[in-house]
Write a protein that binds this DNA or RNA. Structure first.
Length: 661
DNA sequence: ACCGTGGAGGGT
DNA sequence: CCCTCCACGGTC
C-alpha cells in the first residue's frame, strides 16, 4: 500500500454485528504510527493480543524502531505481509478516529504534501482520561432528535422562515437539504446578521436525519451561531483540555450531531454528516498555522467530496476560491438580486481620492475628511457610529517628520511607535526607547505619526465630538455588542462590536490596499464589507479611499461576487491560486537545493525563485490544478527522501499558502 | 532514537 | 578464514 491509500471505508449502520463491520475479531491491526518522519507515512501492521479490544479508530502505543510510539488503529485485517509482528498496547478502546475522518485526514495530507500523522494531530484532540471514564456525555444527552429540535418543522417544503434564504433564491437549496440531498452553494450574504439563515440551513439538514458542521473564524462567531442555534455543540480551541475532549467525545459517540466550531472542528467526527457550512472563508483564521497548513474551506471541500455532504460557503465577501467553485459549476450561487440589495444595503460613499484629500484642510490635520465629520455628526443623532481603523494601538508607526520615511529601531530594525498618549517613542518589537533617533535617509531628528491606531483615533474623535461616549474594540480588549444609542465605536477589523449602526466610517483604506500581498484587495473588501454589514439598511457608509479602485467600487455597488470574479480573472492571468496550484517551499539554500535534487515534478510544473523568505529562501512551484495532486505527491516523496537520508536542515512546504507575498 | 545487516580490515 | 567494528538504512 502506498502513502496515498487507505483502507476502503466499511459501511456502517448495516445492522451486522460490530465484529463483522469493523473487523474487531481479526488478529492484525493496521496502525497509523506517529513517527514524525515523512518517509514512514504509511500504515504498519501489529499483532492484537488475544482477548484485547482494539477496534479501528482507537488509540494505541506500539513499539516502533525500539521505542514506544503513539498511533491509531486504522483497520483490522486477517493477515499481514510482514513476517514478525510486535504486539500493540491499547491506550483505550474509545473510538476517536472514525473511518470517515481517517480518510479525510489522508486526503488532506495528500492535498497539502503532508503526513497523515501531522493531520491527525490537528484532527484528534489530546486524550483526557478522567473525561473519557466519566459517565458518558452520550448517556446524559440523548442523541439529537430532529423532531425535537427547534425549527425542525421548517423541513416541510414551503415552511421555512420567510427571511431565511429567500432573498438569494435559496428555497430550493433548503428543500434539497431537507430532502436528504447534498447541494453545494456559494452564498454572497447581504448586510445584516447571517446567523439565522445559517441556523435555518442547519435545521433543514438536521430534519433530514443527518449531522451538521458549522465552521466560523473565531470564538465570538461561535457564540453568535450558538445564540441562533442553541441546540448546537460548540468546539473551539480555547475550551481547555477537559471540556474540549468532553465535547469531542459527545460528537464522536454520536450524542452531538450539530456542531459549530473554529478551524480544527473541520475534522469533527460528526455522524452521517449532511452539511458543512463555512462562514467568511476569506478570514485567515481559517488557515491552520501548523503543518501541513490546511485551510478549513479546503477541508470542508474535501469532506463534501469524500462524504458526499452538502456545502454552504458564505460571507459578506466572496473569495476568488468561492468564485472558482461557481465558475466550474461545482457550486451554485446564492446571490440576491439588485432589488434586494438596494433594499438592505447601506449607501456606500467613497470620499478621499488623493486630490480631494489634498484640498481638504480638515482631512490634513485630523485625518477626517469633511464629509466624514458631517456624516458622523448627523448619524450620532440617531444611533452609534462605527469607525474601522486598520491598525491597533496608539501610534503603531512613527515616521521621519521631514521625509516621511518609516522610523526604525537602531537596535533591531523594528518600527518605532508611541505606545500611549504622551509616551516616549519606543520600538514596537523590542520595546527599547528610541533615544537619540535620527532619520537614516535625511538625518532629521523629528518624528511624526505615520500610522495611527485605534486608540489614538478614539482620542481624536472624542475631542472632536465632546459629550459623545467613545467605545474602543481591538486587540485583546474586544467589545461584543453596543446598544443602539449614540456612541462612537472605534474598532480594528474583525473586532467590530455587533450593533445597529447609524453610520460606518472606514478609515485609512490605503493601509489595507497597500499591503504587499496578492490578496490585499480581496482582503480589504472583506474587512470593509464585514463592517458595512453592521450598518442599518440604507445608512451611510463612508470609505476614505479613491472611488476609482475596484475594491472600493465593489463596496459601493455591494457586488462582492463581481469583485471575486474579477479577482479570479486576475489570478488566472497572473498564474496564481486558485487558478493554479502553488507550493511555497522555505528553507536554507542548501536544503532547498537538496530537495530539488530529489524532486520529480509533474510535466507542466514551473519552478520560480528562489526569493528571500522569513527563514532562508523560498521556492515557488506552480502547476495546473490538474497536476495539483501530483505536485503534492512529488513534494511529499522528496521530503521523504530527505528524511530517510537524514539530510540536515529544515524545510517547510506550504501548498496554496494563505499569504501570497 | 534503536537495531540488523554487511563490508572492510586486521588478526588467527 | 573468522571476528569485530562501524556505517548505513529500515523501522510491522
Amino acid at each position: 500500500m502506498t502513502a496515498g491509500e487507505l483502507p476502503v471505508a466499511r459501511v456502517t449502520g448495516t445492522g451486522l454485528p460490530a465484529a463483522r463491520v469493523t473487523g474487531t475479531g481479526l488478529p492484525v491491526a493496521r496502525v497509523a504510527v506517529d513517527t514524525g518522519l515523512a518517509h514512514l507515512d504509511r500504515p504498519f501492521d501489529y499483532a492484537v493480543p488475544d482477548g484485547v479490544d482494539a477496534p479501528p479508530g482507537c488509540r494505541v502505543r506500539v513499539r516502533f524502531a525500539g521505542r514506544l510510539t503513539d498511533g491509531y488503529v486504522l483497520e483490522r485485517v486477517a493477515t499481514s505481509e510482514h513476517p514478525r509482528l510486535s504486539p500493540l498496547k491499547v491506550v483505550s478502546p474509545e473510538v476517536v478516529l472514525t473511518v470517515e475522518v481517517a480518510r479525510l485526514a489522508r486526503s488532506v495530507a495528500d492535498r497539502y504534501a503532508g503526513s497523515l500523522a501531522d493531520v491527525l494531530r490537528l484532527a484528534v484532540p489530546p486524550r483526557h482520561a478522567r473525561t473519557e471514564a466519566a459517565p458518558s456525555a452520550a448517556a446524559a444527552t440523548p442523541p439529537a432528535d430532529a423532531a425535537a429540535a427547534p425549527g425542525a418543522d421548517a423541513a416541510e417544503p414551503g415552511a421555512f422562515p420567510p427571511d431565511a434564504l429567500d432573498a438569494y433564491g435559496g428555497r430550493g437549496y433548503l428543500e434539497s437539504l431537507a430532502a436528504g440531498r447534498s447541494p453545494r452553494a456559494v452564498w454572497a450574504a447581504l448586510p445584516g446578521s447571517p446567523w439565522s439563515a445559517i441556523a435555518v440551513a442547519a435545521r433543514a439538514c438536521v430534519a433530514s436525519g443527518r449531522g451538521v458542521l458549522v465552521l466560523v473564524p473565531d470564538a465570538r462567531d461561535v457564540a453568535r451561531v450558538l445564540s441562533a442555534l442553541p441546540e448546537a455543540t460548540a468546539l473551539q480551541a480555547d475550551l481547555g483540555p477537559a471540556a474540549r475532549y468532553r465535547r469531542f467525545l459527545a460528537v464522536s459517540r454520536g450524542a452531538a450531531r450539530l456542531v459549530v466550531g473554529t478551524r480544527a472542528a473541520a475534522f469533527a467526527p460528526v455522524r452521517d454528516l449532511g452539511l458543512v457550512v463555512v462562514w467568511d472563508d476569506g478570514d485567515d483564521l481559517h488557515a491552520e498555522p501548523r503543518a501541513p497548513y490546511p485551510h478549513a474551506r479546503e477541508v470542508a471541500l474535501l469532506r463534501s467530496l469524500g462524504e458526499g455532504c452538502a456545502l454552504l460557503l458564505g460571507g459578506h465577501a466572496v473569495t476568488a476560491e468561492g468564485a472558482s467553485l461557481l465558475a466550474s459549476g461545482w457550486a451554485h450561487p446564492l446571490v440576491a438580486d439588485r432589488g434586494a440589495v438596494r433594499a438592505v444595503a447601506p449607501r456606500v460613499v467613497a470620499t478621499g481620492s488623493d486630490a480631494e484629500l489634498a484640498r481638504d484642510e480638515a482631512a490634513r490635520f485630523a485625518r477626517l475628511p469633511t464629509l466624514v465629520w458631517r456624516t458622523a455628526r448627523e448619524a450620532l443623532r440617531s444611533g452609534p457610529v462605527l469607525v474601522q481603523v486598520p491598525r491597533r494601538g496608539y501610534v503603531p508607526g512613527l515616521a521621519c517628520a521631514r521625509c516621511r520615511t518609516a522610523a526604525r529601531c537602531g537596535h533591531c530594525g523594528g518600527p518605532l511607535a508611541l505606545p500611549a498618549a504622551g509616551a516616549v517613542p519606543a520600538c514596537g518589537w523590542c520595546g527599547r526607547p528610541a533615544a537619540g533617533w535620527h532619520c537614516g535617509e535625511c538625518r532629521s531628528d523629528r518624528l511624526r505619526a505615520g500610522a495611527v491606531g485605534e486608540r489614538r483615533t478614539a482620542e481624536e474623535l472624542g475631542r472632536a465630538f465632546p459629550g459623545v461616549p467613545v467605545v474602543t474594540s481591538g486587540g485583546d480588549a474586544v467589545v461584543d455588542e453596543v446598544p443602539a444609542t449614540p456612541a462612537l465605536v472605534v474598532a480594528t477589523p474583525g473586532a467590530e462590536p455587533i450593533g445597529a449602526y447609524a453610520a460606518v466610517v472606514l478609515l485609512d483604506a490605503w493601509t489595507l490596499l497597500g499591503r504587499p500581498d496578492l490578496r490585499a484587495a480581496e482582503e480589504a473588501l472583506r474587512r470593509w464589507a464585514n463592517a458595512a454589514a453592521l450598518a442599518r439598511p440604507q445608512a451611510p457608509v463612508l470609505v476614505v479611499a479613491d472611488a476609482g479602485l475596484a475594491a472600493v467600487q465593489a463596496l459601493v455597488r455591494w457586488d462582492p461576487l463581481g469583485h471575486a470574479e474579477r479577482e479570479l480573472a486576475e489570478r488566472t492571468a497572473l498564474g496564481f491560486p486558485p487558478a493554479v496550484r502553488l507550493a511555497a517551499v522555505d528553507g536554507e539554500p542548501a536544503a532547498l537545493q537538496a530537495l530539488l535534487g530529489h524532486l520529480t515534478l509533474p510535466p507542466a510544473a514551473e519552478v520560480l525563485g528562489p526569493v528571500p523568505a522569513p527563514v532562508g529562501e523560498r521556492l515557488l512551484i506552480r502547476t495546473p490544478r490538474s497536476e495539483g495532486a501530483a505536485l503534492a505527491a512529488a513534494l511529499h516523496a522528496a521530503a521523504g527522501i530527505r528524511s530517510a537520508r537524514k539530510e540536515p536542515g529544515a524545510i517547510r512546504i506550504q501548498v496554496d499558502p494563505a499569504v501570497l507575498g
